[in-house]
Every structure is written in C-alpha cells, then in structure tokens.
Write a protein that binds this DNA or RNA. Structure first.
Length: 467
RNA sequence: GGUCCCAUCGUCUAGUGGUCUAGGACGCUGGCCUCUCACGCCAGUAACACGGGUUCGACUCCCGUUGGGACUACCA
C-alpha cells in the first residue's frame, strides 16, 4: 500500500472571477485527489494587492461551492503568510543557496536592453553572485542557480521535459520592498502544505524548472507535475476577459446545472473512450491523468447545452421544482404553488435545454397570456366558434381534470363532431398559452387546472367574437 | 530573437504499428414519429497540417517544415 496521501491544490488569484479555465484546473485537481482518496487544498493567491479584491474572492469561493468542488483545507491566503516566506528565505541564505544582490532596477533594465540589442539572452549577469554582499536598503535576494547541467522532470501529461540550466538565471526570490516573488511563494506554499501533485495550466511549464531548482535548494521533495493544455476562446486565442472567459456563475444564471458543466469541463482535455456523459461520481471513479490530452482546445458551449438538456431530462420533479423556482421568480412570478411549478416543469422537461429556457417557456402557466399575433390571425377564426363553445361546455362538465379523464372527454367530443384532434389542437393551444408551441394539450390542461382552462377558453371565445 | 510545449471531421475527441475504405459526441442536413414544439429513432455531411525517413506495413515511431501557444519581469 502506498502510505503517502495524495495532496493537490487549486490556487486561484482573486484578480478576477472564476472562469472555465480555472474551473477546469480546479476540477482536475479535485478529481485526482478524490479518485485517490487524497486531499484537496484551496489557496488564494492574493499577493497582488492592487488587483486582488474581496468580492472576487467571494465569487471564486461561491463558484467552487456551486460546482460542488469541496476542499479539505483552506482557504489559505498568501497575503497572511509572509513570515513563513521569510523563514524559507533565511534558510536559503544561510545555506548559501541564495544571495543578496544590490544591482538597481535601472542598471538591470539597461543591461537587459543592451543584451537584447546585441541579440543575446537577456539574463542576469551574476554580478553580485559571488560578492558576499549583506542586506541593504533596496537589496533583493536571488537564487544561486546552477550554471551548467540540465533540469529534467517527467510531466504527467506532456512526458519528459528538460531544459539546460544555462537558459535560466538567478531569479529574484525576494523583492527590494521585502515582498516575495511568485515562483518562491508557490514553492514555499506547496512544499509547506505538503502538496505532492501540482496540476495546473501549461502556461506554467516554463516556470517548472525554476521551481524545481528552488525545491532542490530548499532540499525539499519535488512534487509530481501535470500540465494541462489551455482552453481557447472561439477565435483560438487563449481565454481572456474579452471573450470566452465567462464567469462560472454566468453559466448558473443561464440555467446550466453544475453537474453538466463539470461533465463538459472534464471532457475538454480528458476522455474515457467514447463515453460522453459522466455523473460526478463516475468522473471521480474513472478519472486519470493518463487520459488527459496534450493539445489545447476550444470550449464547446453547444455541447454543454446539449449535455445540460440530458441532465434536465433525468431530474426528478422535486429537484426540478426547486431548481426552476428561482428562475421563475427572477422573471417576475410570485406566490408560486410548488405543486404547479413541479407539474409545469415536468411538462417542459424534454423540451428545455436550460433552466432559463424552461422558466421562459412555462410563463404561460403562471402569468397572463397575450396571443401571438400571427397565431391569433391564423388559428382563432370565427368558423370555430360553435366547436369551441361546445368544447367549453364539455370541459365544464368534467369531473376531474387528469390527463386520462381529459383524453376520454376529447375522444367523445371528436366523435360527436366528426373531426380530428388536429383540427382544434392549435386553436386550443393558442387559447391556453398564446403561442403555437407548447407541451401536449392534455398535459398543459391538467397543470393549468380546470378553472384556468375554462377561463382562458372563454376569453378566447369572446376574443374571437369581438374580432 | 532564444528556450519550451502543441498539431485527427467546423468543435470536443477515440485511436498507443496492421482490426482505419479512421470510430463516437455536438452542430448542420434529410427522413420517420406526431395535437404544435420538442423527445426519440434512422440516414447523411465532414478530419489524420506538410515533407522526408524507419518498417513488410504508419494516424500511430524519428527528423525537418509550416502553423499555433507559453515563457523569457523586483506580474501572477
């Protein structure tokens, strides 16, 4: 048995909300941890004090909760860990793996510009590397990285990656203002939190060798790395605020179910043969890093919506009612009867791709209707008056308004008039809903209830007469 | 510029040297079903970026080209 528990983490930066790129990274970390009975840690990387906001932090946490990606530890906040970073810096300094550098920013900028102009690599020239300098105002701490050799690691999705150490320079670990640098913070955090698998976007591949060098300098175990390909916008550009970086909560407002979003995020980059639909539980059981693809991809919203409709079809009436209610309220419906909402939802279950669609299409159950102009003209015609009035009479005599009973009434009614259902279905539908499309007429009559059906049919009859 | 990563239908992908005249899903088109709209069912559409190798045999392995992307900061 493996006695080391797997620990993964998700470290969002609250400089924005949680979008699908971040959500997928979170999901893969979560799945990997859950699949292996490991631990999942949430860490907020809020060291960018100017761009980080409290409200973004709240949105991120809210999104995680909505998705059901629960964490076992955290949230930790990087902004509260400066003491720990200092300890590690001291350790590096005392072991000679880091040194103070007194070069000014201006000097560095100038040298970089010169190197670039000459077509050379713009890396730090190591001026202070062996000067044995002490701390001083404006000094930074740099890592003493190896000048030769190669740094190699086996990425769990990309395979072996190696880079010559000569490509890397002595990166700054601590800034002149005393704050810690990103690469150092990540390593210290991951290391001190016991993270042994780092699953993140492949935009971090080039940071990995630098971080490995820090792990080595710290003499700490190096975690496993898995770099996920990026998610692209419809224009094949990496996701940004501009287009595809839709906040996860926007999908919630669209009426997407969390399990559908999770499913579709999982299938972007990961696969399990030809299987397309996975419950969250199945995702946990079947997920593995080996089946994560290497190529970046575009998030397919059409497919998400299709998946969502399939999840809606599987919901039971009670959950359907619970889920639909907030959408109806947002559309101005109040004093909703739970039973009616449930009944309405069931009639629309197979016809709705999102909860928002369902809410919109079920409005006729809860609010007054207006006739669609063209439908009114085409179907609510004077020649139908006698038929509709007789139908009204028959319906008024109905003992109960169940679908079964209604069908019986209609069989007799159609027989009596020697007509097909087709003849009155549309006029009746428009009388009851105002529109040319709806669930089956018996279904809607049952949910609407006798009183409402009688009222709407009478209204339609007088409307026709007044034409 | 340098380094690193990537490349199968429009999109997401299966495929780990022969079972591929390349499979599934979404989308789209046509048909069936039918009280409308859907659901469902059936059918069709459409891809291995290019060029060299290796091999009896390459979508699968190697090299190159092209095209994307990332990193190259006292941003994260």
């Amino acid at each position: 048995m493996n006695n080391t528990q797997i620990v993964t983490r998700f470290p969002p930066s609250p400089t924005g909300t949680l979008h699908i790129g971040g959500a997928r990274t979170a999901l893969f970390n979560w799945l990997f941890a859950r699949h292996n009975n490991g631990k999942f840690v949430l860490r907020i990387e809020d060291t960018d004090r100017v761009r980080s906001t409290q409200s973004n932090t709240e949105v991120i946490i809210g999104s995680m909760k909505w998705l059901g990606l629960d964490w076992d530890e955290g949230p930790y906040f990087q902004s509260q860990r400066s003491k720990i970073y200092d300890e590690y810096i001291q350790k590096l300094l005392s072991t000679g793996n880091a040194y103070y550098c007194h070069c000014s920013k201006e000097e560095l900028d100038r040298k970089r510009a010169e190197a670039l102009a000459k077509g050379l690599k713009p890396k730090y020239d190591g001026k202070c590397r062996d000067l044995g300098l002490g701390d001083a105002p404006g000094a930074v701490v740099r890592l003493r990285s190896p000048l030769t050799g190669t740094t190699t690691f086996k990425d769990l999705v990309k395979g072996v990656i190696s880079i010559d150490n000569s490509e890397l320079d002595d990166l700054i670990l601590k800034r002149s203002d005393g704050s810690i640098t990103y690469n150092m913070a990540v390593v210290v955090d991951d290391s001190s939190m016991g993270i042994n698998y780092v699953i993140r976007g492949d935009d971090h591949i080039n940071n990995t060798p630098r971080q490995i060098l820090i792990y080595k300098a710290l003499n700490r175990p190096i975690p496993g790395f898995a770099h996920l390909p990026m998610i692209l916008g419809p224009d094949r550009k990496p996701l940004s605020k501009r287009h595809g970086a839709t906040s996860v909560l926007a999908f919630k407002e669209m009426g997407i179910l969390p399990e559908a979003l999770l499913n579709s995020l999982a299938r972007l980059g990961w696969s399990y043969g030809d299987k397309e639909k996975f419950s969250t539980q199945e995702l946990i059981e079947l997920f593995s890093l080996e089946h994560v693809g290497k190529a970046s991809g575009i998030f397919n919203v059409e497919k998400l919506i299709d998946l969502n409709s399939k999840y809606i079809m599987e919901m039971d009436g009670d959950r359907l009612a619970d889920s639909l209610t907030p959408f109806l309220e947002a559309l101005g419906c109040s004093h909703l009867s739970r039973e009616k909402v449930k009944g309405a939802a069931i009639t629309l279950q197979k016809r709705s791709k999102t909860l928002l669609d369902m809410a919109k299409d079920s409005l006729f159950y809860f609010k007054d209707i207006t006739y669609d102009e063209k439908a009114d003209e085409k179907f609510l015609t004077i020649d139908l008056i006698d038929t509709l009035e007789d139908l009204l009479t028959d319906l008024q005599g109905a003992m109960d308004f169940s679908q079964a009973e209604l069908e019986k009434i209609f069989v007799n009614f159609l027989e009596k008039h020697q007509i097909k259902l087709k003849k009155i279905a549309q006029p009746l539908r428009i009388s009851l809903t105002g529109k040319t499309f709806s669930p089956g007429i018996f279904e809607i009559m049952e949910v609407l209830g006798k009183d409402m059906v009688i009222k709407r049919l009478s209204d339609a009859i007088s409307h026709i007469k007044n034409k």
